[in-house]
Simulated assay, not measured.
Amino acid sequence: MVSFMNRSFGFSAASITPDRSFPTADNVDLDRYMRDWYVIAHIPPKVTRTAHNSIERYRRKGDDQIDVTFTFRKDGPNGAHKTMNPTGFVVPNTGNAVWAMQFVWPIKMQFVVSYVDDDYQTTIVARERRDFVWIMAATPQISDDAYDALVERVRQIGYDMSKLRKVPQQPAESHVSLA
């Protein structure tokens, strides 16, 4: 099998895989992880800094690829509907927790499933550079206790918590359909 990393300029699994000390989920069951995830809070890239109703949809595309549909409303709940469609490439020998996310060819960015709860209801996707992070859930709202526990995990990873933004989420029925 040809490694996906050989298809882009100079990228390797080593350049995407975080140091062993970086928190990574032990073993991500990809079939359970493939779902719609509501972004509850994030330290986002500039393009999604004012996002509302953000949803990441993951669908398997073969054994090592993930089709991603990211939708959000720009600048408010009634703002322009935006969609991004990156592809995730699962890095071998990482328990399915490390992905190379490609928004624009040939650039691949590190995405690490740092945490997923036993019931696959909440997750944290982080980066070793500690520049971006996403707290996500299977529902658009979570309890304050669940939120606080996830925020504490992000803090323990070493993020600048002053940059964390809670993403406004309306009830699920008011979101734009991804189907």
Rank of each mutant, 00 (worst) to 15 (best):
M1W: 13
V2D: 15
S3F: 12
F4P: 10
F4D: 12
N6A: 12
N6L: 12
R7P: 03
S8I: 10
A13F: 12
A13P: 04
A14C: 06
S15W: 05
I16E: 01
I16R: 02
I16W: 04
T17Q: 06
P18W: 00
R20K: 11
R20E: 10
S21P: 06
S21N: 15
S21D: 14
S21F: 10
P23T: 06
T24A: 11
N27I: 11
V28F: 07
D29Y: 09
L30Q: 14
Y33D: 01
Y33V: 02
M34I: 09
M34W: 10
R35L: 09
R35P: 03
D36T: 00
D36R: 03
D36G: 00
D36A: 03
W37R: 02
Y38P: 00
V39Y: 00
H42T: 14
H42R: 15
P44S: 11
S54A: 13
S54F: 04
S54G: 12
S54L: 11
E56D: 14
Y58C: 06
Y58Q: 06
K61H: 14
G62Q: 11
D63K: 15
D64P: 06
Q65A: 15
Q65F: 11
I66R: 00
V68N: 02
V68K: 01
T69L: 10
T71M: 05
T71L: 02
K74M: 06
K74H: 11
P77R: 02
P77L: 04
G79P: 03
K82A: 00
K82Y: 00
T83M: 06
N85G: 01
N85E: 06
N85R: 09
T87M: 09
T87D: 03
T87I: 09
G88S: 10
G88P: 04
V90Y: 01
P92I: 11
P92N: 12
T94Q: 05
G95N: 09
N96I: 08
A97M: 05
V98D: 01
W99R: 08
A100I: 02
Q102Y: 05
F103M: 12
F103P: 02
K108D: 09
M109P: 01
M109H: 12
V112N: 05
V112R: 02
Y115L: 09
D117A: 07
D117S: 08
D117M: 09
I124V: 15
A126R: 02
R127C: 08
R129K: 14
F132T: 09
V133P: 01
V133E: 03
M136Y: 03
A137S: 14
A137P: 05
A137K: 03
A137G: 14
T139V: 04
T139H: 07
P140F: 02
Q141C: 07
Q141K: 13
D144E: 15
A146V: 13
Y147N: 04
A149N: 08
R153V: 06
V154R: 00
V154T: 01
V154C: 03
R155C: 04
Q156R: 14
Q156H: 09
I157M: 13
G158M: 07
Y159N: 00
D160F: 04
M161V: 05
L164M: 04
R165F: 04
V167F: 02
Q170V: 08
E173A: 12
S174R: 11
S174Y: 12
S177H: 08
A179D: 13
